Amino acid sequence: MKRAKRFLQILMLTLFIISSAPQITLANTTEEMSQEEIFNARMELYQKMEAITQVPWHYLAAVDTYERGLRRAQRDRPREEGFISIFYDPEIWAGPINPNKEDTDPLSISLFNGIGLDGNGDGVASPTDDEDVLYTFAHYLEQYGFDEDDFRIALWDYYQREQSVSIIHGHAAVYEHFGTLDLDDHAFPIPLNYNYSYKNTWGDRRGWGGRRIHEGTDIFAGYNVPVRATAYGKVEVKGWNMYGGWRIGIRDLDNVYHYYAHLSGFEKGIEEGSIVSPGDVVGYCGSSGYGKPGTQGKFPPHLHYGMYRDNGFTEWSFDPFPSLKQWERKAYQDRKKKK
């Protein structure tokens, strides 16, 4: 049975190679391509590997997207050379006791218990070849099964970190929901037709609950002014926080956690696990927090907006002010175009 399945996989792979030629493989061509062309090239790779291995394309896209975020966050990781960002340590790819850490021979890699596979039938298993890289991970996933529980177990065994499993699973849910990779748009969290004001308050001192720094930007607005999602993503957290009051947390496709605090309440239908788009109302501006559940009015109403990046090991806050200014400018430009 296993031999028959493997034969079918090889046959399908060969047919795809023939039918899809010629292909764009040089890394430097990505610099000359539009974002739409890059998305299309990635989707073609995901769907090709789905056809060969039966692993859903949105699982592959989710892992690749997570790894792309890690490459941006970890300084010791090289930038990807092609469309696919999944990174393999040389010892994992070639085998832990392989004397040649740059080995690309599928046979010797297998003999030394490496995971690198030839994904396009050229006789080479290269950690910089998009099809080899993606096929290797798809093959790893297919050994566990094809439903969500299997996916989670496979991710846990690979990353050994629950946060990584949660983030990737969230990415997969977003891609499955929208059915596209073109999900890079953003929105300013407060609608432009409301009165609001803000300045850069990231890093300011805070005294309530002990000395700490302000990990975000305060956007002052009136009670019950709508608060909107700034990116495509999945709601990870919703509820009460002693500092932030009624708050909601949304993870985007760049592995960034967006934190909305001091709300007066939540939008109906927004729950943990909800998938949101830029501009979707998720809650309403208020003055909750700094006390037990329900505490209100210890400060003027405002939205505390924070951004936290995950690097595969830990998570840290960074200044959201530049992003907010960029999204605000874009919102004004879009509104001007509509007039």
Rank of each mutant, 00 (worst) to 15 (best):
R75S: 15
S108G: 07
A27V: 00
P322D: 11
R42G: 07
F16V: 04
P99D: 08
R247E: 12
E36G: 10
E67D: 14
H58M: 03
G69W: 12
T180H: 04
M49E: 14
G210I: 02
N193Q: 14
E328Y: 14
A41L: 15
H169Q: 14
Y196T: 08
I38S: 13
S164L: 01
I190L: 15
D118A: 02
Q35A: 07
E176T: 05
F137A: 02
Q23R: 15
E44W: 08
I213M: 04
T314K: 12
L107R: 12
Y144E: 02
A94D: 01
P56Q: 11
V276D: 12
I24F: 11
G245F: 00
T30W: 02
Y140V: 01
G119E: 00
H177A: 10
Y194P: 14
N193T: 11
P56T: 08
K336T: 01
H304W: 06
Y308M: 15
G170A: 01
G82Q: 01
D254E: 14
G283A: 10
D182F: 05
E215H: 12
V165K: 01
D182P: 07
T14Y: 11
N28I: 07
G116D: 01
F321E: 13
N255P: 01
N195E: 15
P22T: 06
G273E: 13
K234V: 13
D149G: 05
Q333V: 06
E142M: 15
S126G: 00
W93A: 02
F151W: 00
D157G: 02
T25A: 03
N255W: 08
P301Q: 07
R77A: 09
D254R: 13
A51Y: 06
T14A: 05
T295Y: 02
V124N: 02
E142F: 08
G244M: 03
R228S: 11
Y284T: 03
L134V: 01
W327T: 09
W316S: 13
S287Y: 00
L117C: 11
I153D: 14
Y158T: 01
L60I: 00
E36F: 09
P191T: 13
R335D: 13
Q23T: 11
R335V: 12
I248T: 11
S164K: 09
P127F: 04
E32P: 04
L13P: 00
V124Y: 05
G69K: 04
F83P: 02
M43L: 15
S197I: 12
G273M: 04
T104L: 02
M242G: 10
A187L: 09
E32A: 14
K199C: 11
Y66K: 08
Y194Q: 15
I97Y: 10
K101E: 13
I270P: 04
Y196R: 09
Y59V: 02
G265S: 10
P293Q: 07
L303G: 06
P56D: 07
F318M: 05
G273P: 06
V282A: 07
H177R: 12
Y284V: 03
E80A: 09
Y290R: 05
T29K: 11
S317C: 11
L26Y: 10
L8Y: 14
H302F: 10
Y158F: 13
G69E: 13
I52K: 05
E80D: 07
G273F: 04
L70D: 12
A172N: 02
S20Y: 08
D334Y: 09
